[in-house]
Amino acid sequence: MQLRDKVIIVTGAASGIGLAMSKRFIEEGAARVYLADLNDQQLSAAAASLGDRASTQVCDVTSEEQIQALVARVITEQGRVDLFCCNAGIISIDNPLTATDEQWQRALGVNLMGHVYSARAALPYMLERGEGYFLNTASAAGLLNQPCTTTYAVTKHAAVGFAESLAIEFGDRGIKVSCLCPQAVNTPMVTAGEDEGIKDGGVAGVNGIMEPEELCDFVVQGLAQESFLILPHREVQKYMQNKAADYDRWLLGMRRLKNTMMAEA
């Protein structure tokens, strides 16, 4: 996909990766970018910095009704949705014993059901036109895993699986899907574990912390190539291969990495 003249929706767009992508899409010549987020003040400030091709809508991605309203507005105003970026995400520091029901429900609601609701809302219009694109932000944690963030890692696995299902079910009907799976990116999410002693992005930061603007280079390239997996951190592909080659050895290595990370905290 080339981004010029496209109508694009980005969730989680008030800051971080979502804001950086929105800015880059406009720079690439998008006709209109709709920024959706829960944070009204940040959203307004973000749109003001992007110019007259940016529109905003306050939207909670855990509410199917609000996502339906977002898509309905875009269809009414533009007649189409070319690219839907399911980017909103949350993280918490937890493990299988400490994660509460509330943490599980919130992570599932944002990291998985936000993608499901977006597809339900936009797919019928895309299928009617015979074309459309979903860019689903997951994480390297959805391909590998990540210590100390159980609800995040599990729901990001689910997000990857859902993106695969979209590609399998609708790829022959003009629907393109890319799944963005970075390691650590310099956003507020990276600092989520600092109070618990997890520094520099934890395990996700083992290969360094990427700036959102640099990540957007990989996004634009991946969309142009219509690649399913977009891996801004190239090491992730090697880690996936190691995992598939010897699962037990990979699990042992992850335990060692976790222990090293916690010892240095």
Rank of each mutant, 00 (worst) to 15 (best):
L19N: 09
C59G: 10
L35N: 02
V58R: 14
E64N: 12
A47W: 03
L43A: 10
I67K: 09
T62C: 12
L43I: 03
Q57P: 03
A47D: 03
S55E: 12
L50D: 06
S15R: 15
A48V: 04
Q66F: 11
I26P: 12
S44M: 07
L43W: 02
A54V: 08
K23A: 15
E65M: 05
C59I: 05
D37F: 03
F25Q: 00
A30T: 00
N39V: 02
R24M: 10
N39I: 01
S22C: 07
I67H: 04
D52T: 12
C59R: 02
V58A: 13
R53D: 11
G51Y: 14
G16H: 02
Q66I: 05
I17Q: 08
G16A: 12
Q41P: 01
A48I: 00
E28Q: 15
R32H: 11
A45K: 13
F25P: 01
S22D: 02
L38E: 05
L19W: 02
A36G: 08
E65R: 14
A31T: 02
L43R: 00
A30D: 00
N39T: 02
L38W: 06
S22F: 03
R24S: 07
V58M: 04
L19H: 12
M21V: 03
G51V: 05
A45E: 14
A30F: 00
M21C: 15
G16Y: 10
D52K: 13
R53P: 10
I26V: 13
R53I: 01
V61E: 00
L35H: 04
G51A: 14
Q41D: 12
D37C: 09
S49R: 10
S49K: 07
R24A: 07
